[in-house]
Nucleic acid binder design. Structure first.
Length: 862
DNA sequence: AAGGGTATAAACAGGT
DNA sequence: TACCTGTTTATACCCT
């Protein structure tokens, strides 16, 4: 308590600088209505009073056209800054180039002056100012979205007392022209300062140690007026505060005395300090015609945006995004609706502990301070002319002291100005920590011990996102390969001249935001791919790099090759399967031979189906039953021949499809048919050659299956452009070439009886066959759920691989082609969904897209 | 088990 | 000089 008392007696002061409002008439009476009556505050109603005040009076959209209103508002200090809606993109886009080179231009727009006049204002947030520190601390932990309430509530009670003191009064601003008043105000505020200190101290109690290192120190040292001296600085390093050596303010400022900012001064200083363009001044002059007569505006500092100026008249300013009708949260400086800007993106506040203004980055996208990226949760000091960029909106923090260097320093305490624009280093400097306290004097004279010639800390390390910061859907890496990624990207964004590497990077990030958040390294892979994968070629040279494009020829060739391989694979698969079945049949046959009790025995030898699983008893039995069936090298041949012929018959009408496409369709259809029939039979424990059996027994049905497969394949291959090649409605009536006479007399017994769920429809004669039932065979392939954790984006392996896998072994036959199959599970379960038989919808857009992309992108390095 | 395809990382050279 | 771009090499993993 002693400390508190002493603090209260302190003569620290924090006073705003006085600016001349841009508006001509300043004469209007103070408009205190919107301000929180001190009674309320003192009476402990701060919370109640504060909120309405914030919402109602803090934010007014300035209509540049209604100068009158503006003036009025300005006068009353109510005016809050908000970007004109129209400013949004185009205007901001100019600011994209914010960097040293463009500083001048950026800040040269004449609009600045105009806005300076109109928007000099913001005031109030009384409560907040008081709490600057506290709210800062708190907000650091805040999520972007839950905001102000959290900030203010907790402390408001304590703050209330200080409120009256710290709150700048508009009256004062007006009377400024008479230098004397300044003094008065100054004094007035000094008395208040101590309370702030108290507040700070109080806050400290409530804050976790790590949150308030600086303040904590201050509290300890508050014995005399120097309580805020740098003594407390020693370890000002709250985890969240990053400062560069040069920023380290050796000493704390006992007070922050406001300086009068006069418009004309601003202009001139601006010109000389920042090389601002005269034109700007001119324009400003226009609007500031009354400059001389105008009262000054008290402000601690100001924020120079490209097209307006915001005067920091409170000790706590929230910068963020607010949509037009959203008054749910307070924003002192509205940066527009861009989603890249958080609703509460940053807050500027005066840190009594360090005696300077600081900016805390609250927004999840971080911000740039002097071109250095500062991520959320960090706080950096603000020096004169510190550049800040939030989203795409840059602005400059300007301390009056610097500007009015000529003027007698009213406030030696104001954070030291410095001409240099050295960037803030995210790394804490040794200097700072090493230098416990520096006499106020020091602070002024030597620029800074930091003779750093440092240009810029080499490179800003990319922000490392925590999981929470990454949108859920962008946390997992896309499953598609880089080559697919690149192909897609180039297809989508490239101009005929190609895309530069950086454009490709950007395109990829755009396509897959995952790459916005993931650590760097993928770029290397991208380059590697561009170089090695022949799908990509250099189109033209630009600057130091090339513009990249696709080698469509190569890609087409690749595709063709792939299809070919797919065909071969399918054939192989079919052959393999056939062979297998033959073997099984042979064994089964043997098993049935008299005197052999080796049925059981055989069960051991045959037992494994291709998938390596133990054959079930029923399978074994089925195999045994089929044992007497004639081995079927012939069958196989015959069946294949039949299928091929039927395919040709069914697809007489090629609907203009190219040979290549057509071949692909046939291949896939054949593969589908074989796999599905075989699989269905297998799943029922049927051995033998179900295809042959079906062919023999019910060719009509087989044709239906074939037709459905053709349509599915067609839709798939053509990406839905052609839905069906075969008219299913006619298929049953279509002339069917009779199956070749069989050397084998009887149809596969095994198939005969039981049939399987899928084939069961075949039992009844053609007439009763419901083609719809086939649709389930050819459902569009679902993205493989099996592929573990990585979801959001499609599967990864290329088409050809899938094709191959389809044929490889029966195990996989069940899930054969990625593209054509549907999972087994589907077979039995959602057999009769609403699919139309004929148009088995093959894949949704995405599926198709991906497929084609992947297909095209199929990357082969050599 | 071998080989192909792909992902990563890194070294290096040349350009800006 | 720092950084970007492009090439090349090496290694590892997965899949067929």
């Amino acid at each position: 308590m002693e400390a508190v008392e002493s603090v209260l007696n302190e003569k620290n002061s924090l006073e705003p600088t006085h600016y001349k409002p841009g508006s001509p008439d300043v004469s209007s009476p103070n408009h205190q209505d919107d301000r929180i009556p001190s009674e309320d505050i003192e009476g402990g109603n701060i919370e109640q009073a504060a909120k309405p005040a914030e919402q109602d009076s803090n934010e007014h959209i300035i209509d540049e056209k209604s100068q009158k209103n503006v003036d009025y508002l300005v006068e009353n200090g109510e005016l809050k800054l908000e970007l004109p809606d129209t400013l949004e993109h185009e205007d901001f886009s100019k600011l994209l180039e914010f960097d040293e080179k463009n500083d001048d231009d950026l800040f040269a727009t004449h609009e600045i002056l105009q806005h300076a006049i109109q928007e000099a204002n913001s005031e109030s947030h009384d409560i907040e100012h008081l709490n600057s520190d506290l709210s800062r601390q708190m907000s650091l932990n805040d999520e972007d979205d839950d905001d102000e309430n959290n900030d203010e509530n907790p402390d408001s009670s304590k703050l209330g007392v200080h409120e009256e003191i710290s709150r700048p009064k508009l009256n004062d601003y007006k009377s400024h022209t008479e230098g004397h008043n300044d003094h008065e105000m100054h004094v007035k505020e000094e008395t208040l300062s101590p309370k702030r200190t108290l507040t700070d101290i109080d806050h400290q109690k409530n804050l976790s140690a790590h949150d308030v290192l600086t303040n904590g120190d201050a509290a300890k040292n508050n014995d005399d007026e120097d309580q805020f001296n740098l003594k407390t600085e020693p370890e000002p390093t709250a985890a969240h505060i990053l400062e560069s050596g040069r920023f380290s303010q050796p000493k704390r400022h006992d007070s922050l005395t406001p300086v009068m900012f006069q418009q004309h001064e601003l202009m001139s200083t601006a010109i000389q300090d920042s090389n601002r363009q005269v034109p700007k001044e001119g324009s400003k002059q226009e609007s500031l015609s009354l400059a001389d007569e105008q009262p000054t505006i008290s402000a601690y500092a100001r924020l120079d945006f490209q097209s307006f100026t915001f005067y920091v008249q409170t000790l706590h300013v929230i910068i963020g995004r607010r949509s037009e009708n959203d008054f749910s949260h307070k924003v002192d400086v509205n940066l527009g609706p861009s989603k890249s800007i958080s609703r509460r993106h940053a807050q500027i506040f005066y840190n009594f502990g360090t005696g300077r203004f600081e900016v805390s980055i609250i927004g999840k996208n971080g911000a740039f301070v002097d071109d250095i990226f500062v991520e959320r949760g960090n706080t950096v000091p603000l020096r004169n002319k510190t550049k800040v960029q939030i989203g795409q909106v840059p602005f400059q923090f300007v301390l009056p002291e610097q500007e009015n260097a000529e003027q007698p320093q009213k406030s030696p305490e104001i954070p030291e100005p410095s001409e240099d624009q050295e960037p803030v280093s995210p790394v804490k400097s040794e200097e700072q920590s090493a230098r416990p306290s520096v006499p106020p004097v020091e602070k002024k004279q030597p620029k800074k011990p930091a003779p750093k010639k440092e240009k810029k800390p080499t490179k800003v390390p990319k922000k490392v996102y925590t999981l929470d910061e990454i949108p859920e859907e962008y946390r997992t890496k896309p499953t598609c390969s880089y080559s697919a990624l690149l192909t897609t990207c180039i297809r989508k964004y490239s101009s005929p001249k190609g895309m530069s590497l950086s454009e490709i990077y950007a395109g990829i990030r755009e396509l897959f935001p995952y790459y916005k958040y993931c650590p760097d390294g993928w770029q290397s892979s991208v380059r590697h791919n561009l170089s090695l994968n022949k799908s990509f070629r250099k189109v033209s040279k630009e600057g130091k790099g090339w513009l990249w494009g696709l080698d469509e020829g190569y890609i087409a060739e690749r595709e063709r090759l792939k299809k070919k391989q797919a065909e071969v694979a399918a054939a192989k698969a079919a052959a393999a399967q056939q062979k297998l079945e033959q073997q099984q049949q042979q064994r089964a046959k043997k098993a049935t031979t008299p005197g052999s009790n080796d049925i059981v025995h055989r069960t051991d030898t045959i037992p494994r189906s291709n998938d390596g699983k133990q054959q079930s008893i029923s399978q074994t039995l089925a195999a045994n039953r089929a044992a007497d069936k004639k081995p079927s090298a012939d069958d196989y041949q015959r069946t294949m021949k039949y299928l091929q012929e039927q395919l040709m018959i069914l697809t007489k009408d090629r609907k203009g499809l190219s040979k290549q496409v057509f071949a692909s369709i046939l291949t896939q259809a054949l593969a589908m048919t074989i796999n599905q029939v075989s699989q269905a039979a297998k799943s029922k424990g049927i051995t033998g050659n179900p295809l042959t059996a079906l062919m023999n027994k019910n060719p009509q049905h087989l044709n239906l299956i074939l037709a459905a497969a053709v349509n599915a394949a067609t839709s798939k291959v053509t990406n839905g452009k052609v839905k069906q090649l075969v008219d299913m409605s006619l298929i049953t009536k279509q002339a069917i070439k009779p199956p070749p006479t069989l050397p084998v007399k009887r149809p596969t017994p095994s198939y005969n009886g039981s049939g399987n769920a899928n084939l069961s429809h075949a039992r009844p004669p053609e007439g009763s066959f419901d083609p719809t039932s086939l649709s389930r065979f050819f459902q569009p392939r679902q993205p493989r759920v099996a592929t573990p954790p990585t979801p959001s984006i499609p599967r990864k392996r290329s088409l050809d691989k899938d094709d191959e896998s389809s044929g490889s072994e029966e195990t996989s036959s069940s899930e054969d082609d990625d593209d054509e199959d549907d999972d087994d599970s589907d077979d039995d379960q959602d057999s009769d969904d609403t699919d139309d038989d004929e148009n088995d919808e093959v894949g949704d857009h995405k599926d198709n897209e991906e497929q084609s992309e992947e297909t095209a992108a199929e990357g082969v390095y050599e």
